[in-house]
Design a protein around this nucleic acid. Structure first.
Length: 224
DNA sequence: ACCCAGATCATCT
DNA sequence: GATGATCTGGGTG
């Protein structure tokens, strides 16, 4: 079981460490395969401009949930980090479904396991996470958070869907996972700190899901 | 494979 | 009044 000390570290460290851990909400969940780090000095972070009613949980103790509504219709699930109340958190972006697949399929209205939790909004819908979970400790029901079994190969890259802090490579993914919200674009920095190409031996792309690698501001590299 | 627009609302300017 | 840590379905090549 993951304890308090686990979260009492900076967001980047926790975001890396969460890859491979298992999250269950009322018994529904799986292996965390994609995260992003945000902290107080980060212009992309909700905490950047200080505490507000919405982001209050981010300024509370580490190890609690921070849940907010995104684009008026999705929920996004974060884990607050430390040390202490620093306004840092890790966004959970994708999970490899492992438990409660039927419940996920019903909530999502989909059967394809690859798409059940591939994205922060999808993940919340599949696990039934809502504002009701905001501020709750991850150490107690309905949550269960289990440390990963063995060593995990973690890749890093730029975060998704933001307009500020675009350069900071604080998106982390389990190497080779088919369950990411979108492929990690090269170059990817491996957990050993070295740049890797292609992600896996013999592989071309990390996760070439057709029609999932769609238009995005970040895709439009200035054609100049 | 890529591009686009609509849904929908709390938060902040 | 605009924006956004998103997702989906539709269109086109």
């Amino acid at each position: 079981m993951i304890d308090e000390a686990f979260f009492a570290r900076d967001a980047e460290t926790v975001a890396r460490a969460l890859i491979g851990a298992t999250l269950l909400v009322d018994g529904v969940g799986g292996v965390i395969v994609e995260t992003e780090a945000y902290d107080r000095e980060d212009p992309a972070s909700h905490s950047f401009r200080g505490e507000t009613p919405r982001n209050g949980a981010m300024f509370g103790p580490p190890g609690r949930a921070y849940v907010y509504r995104s684009y008026g219709m999705h929920w996004c699930f974060n884990v607050v980090c430390g040390p202490g109340p620093t306004g840092a958190a890790v966004l959970l972006r994708a999970i490899e479904p492992a438990a409660g697949l039927d419940a996920m399929r019903e909530r999502r209205g989909l059967s394809d396991a690859r798409l059940l939790c591939a994205g922060p909004g999808r993940l919340c819908q599949a696990l039934g996470v809502t504002r009701a979970h905001d501020g709750l400790p991850l150490s107690a029901p309905p949550f269960r958070l289990l440390a990963s079994d063995g060593p995990t190969a973690v890749l890093a890259g730029p975060r998704i869907g933001i307009t500020k802090g675009v350069e900071t490579p604080w998106r982390f993914a389990l190497a080779g996972s088919r369950f990411l919200s979108r492929p990690l674009r090269e170059p990817c920095v491996g957990s050993d700190g070295r740049t890797q190409r292609g992600g896996l031996p013999g592989g071309r792309n990390l996760d070439p899901i057709p029609d999932l690698n769609r238009s995005n501001r970040l895709d439009r590299k200035d054609p100049r």
